[in-house]
Amino acid sequence: MQHQTAAIECVGLGHTYSPGTPFAKAALSNITLNVGAGEFVGLIGHTGSGKSTLIQHFNALLQPTEGTIRIHGADIHADKATLRATRQNVGLVFQYPEHQLFEVSVYKDVSFGPENMGLGRDEVDARVRKALALVGIGADSFEKSPFELSGGQKRRVAIAGVLAMQPSVLILDEPTAGLDPRGRTTILSTIKNMHDELGITVVLVSHSMEDIAKYVSKIIVMHSGTIFKQGTREEVFADAKALENIGLDAPVVSRLFQELRAKGLDIPGTPFTTHEATQLLHQFLKN
């Protein structure tokens, strides 16, 4: 899969806010990355590390001040038509997406995106139903006001609003922020299912290492506007100290195993999730 055209490809991308004024501020510099089609990528970094600025480039909300960005091989700022196509191809779910709900009913809110695409009525209907089914909102809630729903439900409706545009790349900025553990699990497993079933590319922005470690196949670590490290979770979490220095932590269980080894316990492997840790511990204790 990785050898096909990359879904997202940035070369030397940089972004400066208010260039040429006294307020100029470099938010991103020299970002070179590659997200293969169908990959599930995690983007982590501290607040202010440039994650949000970076993902807004992925669907052309921001234009790079340096370097290039290609989506499915096409330069997205070539002309107006590619720009429109990009916004549909790359679905961006912002942080606290429930704050963008505005329609009188759940159904209408989700149909906002596909209607803006100029699709026929039947096509819109089919897409709305499919998107709401994907996030687990039943037909009995279609006519409810989105403001009557619970926090977790609101968020799922908002995510459905982006899914209804049927993007081939889905970017989610902290989709679990402010949700309780059950809400988190529901959202994340929904995203995981979509990735597996629809074969779409997913970029998950999070600062929960546990979430990232559990779901993604590749991790990009951002620090003060540049890429600090990218690779598989083994590669990224191998050096817990380096992550700590930029204010991030490897998953708790990975750190536990590193500490155990530092204390002189000869335990092999590095787990990233609780499940993996219990298995490794089990094996170790058995021997």
């Binding site: 429109r84 912002f94 704050h99 545009m165």
Partner: peptide, 29 residues
């Protein structure tokens, strides 16, 4: 504004009526 733009909202083109209507998804939230 960015979130609605990501859903294909258009705040720039169209006449006065269309522009005013396009503000609804912005003003209500």
């Amino acid at each position: 504004m960015k979130a609605q733009k990501a859903r294909g909202a258009d705040f720039e083109t169209g006449g006065i009526v269309k522009k005013a209507r396009s503000l609804i998804p912005l003003l209500i939230p």
